[in-house]
């Protein structure tokens, strides 16, 4: 992907956003609609600038974007979503332990010098320590509520 493609995507995305908000703003009355209108017009103009700049751009913006490890990013986002969606159903500490284990072990995948058993052991120790510290700091000392679920 080049910067040009990304920028065109960006401007189109912003146009869609403008359209969605514009639809709702039209239902508002004065003076509530003034501020949203200003913002929408501003975004639309700037997006148009980005769009035109890139459609008619010369070589300088067409350079390649640095390589993104899509698989990794998508899986981290997916695991995180799964994590927070299961907190309220299953329980904060239970899911957190699993999440920490999975993340720590899988993020070490490129560490070829460490044996798998070591990775799992280290992650396990970390998980235990973190969960205990979180419990002490948040639930006992600060009395900040942590999400609750079915199991603790």
């Amino acid at each position: 992907m080049t910067h040009r493609v990304v920028n065109i995507f960006l401007s189109v995305g912003m146009f869609v956003l403008c359209a969605v908000f514009l639809y709702q703003t039209n239902k508002l009355s004065y003076p509530s609609n003034v501020f949203p209108y200003i913002l929408i017009i501003g975004i639309a103009i700037l997006s148009l600038m980005v769009f035109l700049q890139n459609i008619f751009s010369k070589a300088e913006v067409i350079e390649k974007l640095e390589k993104i490890n899509y698989k990794r990013v998508i899986s981290i986002v997916a695991i995180s979503f799964l994590y927070i969606s299961s907190i309220s159903a299953i329980g904060f500490y239970a899911v957190t332990s699993i999440y920490l284990m999975v993340m720590c072990v899988s993020l070490q995948s490129h560490e070829t010098s460490i044996r798998m058993a070591m990775k799992i052991r280290n992650s396990f120790i970390l998980t235990i320590i973190v969960v205990i510290i979180v419990y002490i700091v948040f639930n006992i000392l600060l009395k900040v509520p942590t999400p609750r679920g079915f199991l603790i």
Binding site: I84, S85, S86, S88, A89, I90, G149, F150
Partner: peptide
């Protein structure tokens, strides 16, 4: 049951 509960309750409160 657990899977069902996750599906049913989603992000809301159980």
């Amino acid at each position: 049951l657990i899977v069902l509960m996750i599906l049913v309750t989603g992000c809301g409160q159980s």
